Amino acid sequence: MEDKGKSNKKNNNKKQKHQHPNDQTTRPTSSSSDIAFKPTSDVKGLKFGGQFIVKSFTIRRARPLELLKLLSFPPINKTTTTTTNTNNNNSSSSSKVAFPSTTSFLPTNFTILAHHAWHTLTLGLGTKKSKVVLFVFESESMKLSVDRIWPPEIPLGEVNKKLIRGLGSGCEMARFKFRKGCITFYVYAVRRTGNTGFSRADDLRTILQSVVALNDFLDHTAMLAMPNQRSINYCNTTPPVAMAH
């Protein structure tokens, strides 16, 4: 009986060791101290399973508005500043960008179509899952410096080597993974090595909460609904004036 008890304890310990604190998180972290940062050489990257052809599918850098639509996050209202002079009135408007230190990569049109073609050719055995990758940097300046280096479009198979490992030994990352139907979200928090805490913890928490609240994506061909792939899981209240066929 004692041997069985010991073996059960060993099995439980082994299961606990395999559970990464930031992997498949369902409850967003409440403070930056809860985030487990690791060197870029140790942090987990994207997983592809046995679908090696998926590595050749591409993702592209998203625009800020596309990120908001992806997360079903309401856009930030424009703040209008009015300056009045004696001779004329000059009004200038400026819009605040949400998540200014976040860079996101979405599946390209080719990837979306290739996923469906691959699923059809393999008689339903090929994967239909796309990947979305978000990097939340600790500062806007860090994001801008990295954006100059990273390509605007990259094959999924090169993300681990060129984006995650490519940041070098001077950075640390925390990884979060969420499966939402046919789309898997990978969220990475990035900071300089040696820094304590995470200055963009609020943005990170908001993004994680938004991803958790999303419904499963049953069919990601909805990403092709608008010209230039502007919309993901987004319903425009204004009907189009005309449509070209």
Rank of each mutant, 00 (worst) to 15 (best):
A114R: 08
F135R: 01
T102F: 08
K143H: 08
M142R: 11
L125T: 09
L125S: 12
T206Q: 13
S199Q: 13
R148N: 14
P100I: 10
S199C: 01
R165P: 02
R148Q: 12
H119T: 00
T127D: 10
T196E: 14
M142H: 07
N109V: 10
E138A: 14
L204D: 00
L204F: 10
S139F: 10
L163N: 01
A201T: 07
G168D: 06
V133C: 12
V212K: 15
I183R: 05
H119Y: 14
V136C: 14
T120P: 00
R175Q: 13
E138D: 15
E153W: 02
K180W: 08
A201L: 06
L125K: 15
Q209I: 01
L144W: 05
V187G: 02
A114E: 13
R165G: 04
G181C: 05
K129Y: 00
E158T: 06
C171Q: 08
A189Y: 02
T120H: 09
L208P: 01
F178S: 15
T196C: 06
K131F: 09
G197R: 02
G126T: 02
A98Y: 04
Y186R: 01
S139N: 07
P107N: 05
D147R: 08
F178W: 03
G124P: 03
E172I: 03
T111F: 09
P152E: 14
L113G: 00
H115G: 13
R191F: 06
N109A: 12
T193P: 00
I149C: 02
T184N: 11
R205D: 09
K180G: 07
R179G: 13
C182Y: 00
I207K: 06
L204V: 07
P151G: 09
F105Q: 02
R175M: 15
L167F: 15
V190W: 01
R148L: 13
G181S: 03
L163C: 09
R179A: 14
R192I: 01
I154L: 13
F176R: 03
T184I: 10
V159R: 05
G126Q: 04
G157F: 07
T103N: 10
W118E: 05
G157D: 06
F110G: 00
M173D: 04
K128H: 06
K143R: 15
V187S: 05
E138C: 03
R148G: 14
M173Y: 04
A201W: 05
P100F: 09
G168T: 09
T196W: 06
L144H: 12
E140W: 04
F110A: 03
R192V: 03
E172W: 01
T193D: 00
V159S: 03
E158M: 12
K177A: 07
N160D: 15
G170I: 02
G170V: 00
P107S: 07
Y186S: 09
P107H: 11
V136E: 15
G181R: 09
H115V: 00
